[in-house]
Design a protein around this nucleic acid. Structure first.
Lengths: 197, 197
DNA sequence: AGGGTATGGTATCGATACGATACTAAAAAA
DNA sequence: TTTTTTAGTATCGTATCGATACCATACCCT
């Protein structure tokens, strides 16, 4: 007998496998592996507290050594840029180069996904997002790693005015666009975790 | 700006990465890789039309050569058994050995997932399943591969009596338990595809 | 029949992801 | 200061993975 949560796991695995194939196809022209595409996509979305090798390795669930090598390759190809953090001289900051941005906007790794979800109502997508988000959150509890999530749904994200937000975790101001990026320290507000709107 | 479908893709990838780490942890004692765990889990669920190397490679999105090697390893370890199909002598049938079944029931690769989904209502799980299922179905349309899914929600699955079902695709009888397994030729009934109950 | 092609699987090989370990350097803590 | 922790890199062995070639059986033509 197949219990429903297991079916869900099955579907998640299967979707990931399908997208992995898609990423492989997309990267093959440039000699990039699926993991490289994933890294680029992460860097496209990571906010300024989360654009480090450490964050990426936690996000991907790979060891830092492994990720370090992948990042070196991406840097050699000129797809990303690396620079030292001003405050903490140990940390390396990462960002997409112009070439990297161009690559993503040309190859559009999410295009197939967009097509496949085209006919699903916004409500149903939002609902599923909230379910999966809560599963990620739970898995992280048992896994130790940070949960990751968009700023705007985080308990630390305070709206100061029309366009000024403030992160009470890092104690810094955030612009509107920044609050739509992914942060490694995100802790979802209740209402975004277990309730589906 | 982060569109919701992309967020969903992100979560799916992330969940898959987390479970991949879990699978790696589970397999490390036996020297098994994540892909081996996935293969065992597939074979646990595959019905008798889908327990072949070919079906597995389509399910995992890997080439048949790659999968062939993984299956050889699993066979050498005594975790699966291989036997020739009676009708078509080319096809190899796969099944879990007793050892393989024991391994799965001891290591319970889905246990963490079960825990993580414990507090999510059956309705919400069912709803998400239907959303993800329809995405899988769409992705497959653009990918060419078979969709995979449980018999009981398939248009070819006809209920003959209390405990007898019939598959009009393969033209064979199915027992009740069999209709809860995964088939590569599954075509979801309307109502299980785009509607959420 | 019987020749051509399609299909399911295996064998081999090269590239490379990945974890493990060891290492460096900077930061934090003692 | 000394010690410990943290971020990242370097190196190496293992094993995934795709590509290609190959084999055997099945199917499709005349």
């Amino acid at each position: 007998m197949l219990k429903n949560p297991v079916v869900l796991l099955d579907l998640v695995d299967r979707l990931a496998n399908l997208m992995r194939s898609e990423f492989r196809r997309i990267g093959s022209d440039e000699g990039l592996q699926p993991v490289h595409i994933q890294a680029l996509m992460f860097l496209e979305q990571a906010n300024r507290f989360s654009n480090t090798p450490q964050a990426l390795s936690e996000y991907l669930g790979l060891t830092k050594g492994t990720v370090s090598q992948s990042l070196l390759l991406l840097a050699r190809r000129g797809l990303i840029e690396r620079y030292q953090d001003e405050i903490d001289k140990r940390v390396v900051r990462l960002r997409l180069s112009q070439l990297g941005e161009a690559f993503l906007s040309e190859s559009t790794p999410a295009a197939l996904w967009q097509t496949a979800t085209r006919d699903i109502s916004a409500n149903r997508v939002r609902f599923s997002v909230s379910v999966l988000r809560s599963i990620v959150y739970e898995l992280q509890n048992y896994n130790g790693g940070p949960p990751f999530g968009v700023c705007s749904t985080c308990v630390y994200c305070q709206r100061k005015s029309q366009r000024i937000h403030h992160c009470t975790w890092f104690g810094e101001r955030l612009s509107g666009p920044e609050t739509r990026k992914i942060c490694r320290e995100q802790v979802p507000k209740t209402g975004y975790l277990s309730v589906a709107e």
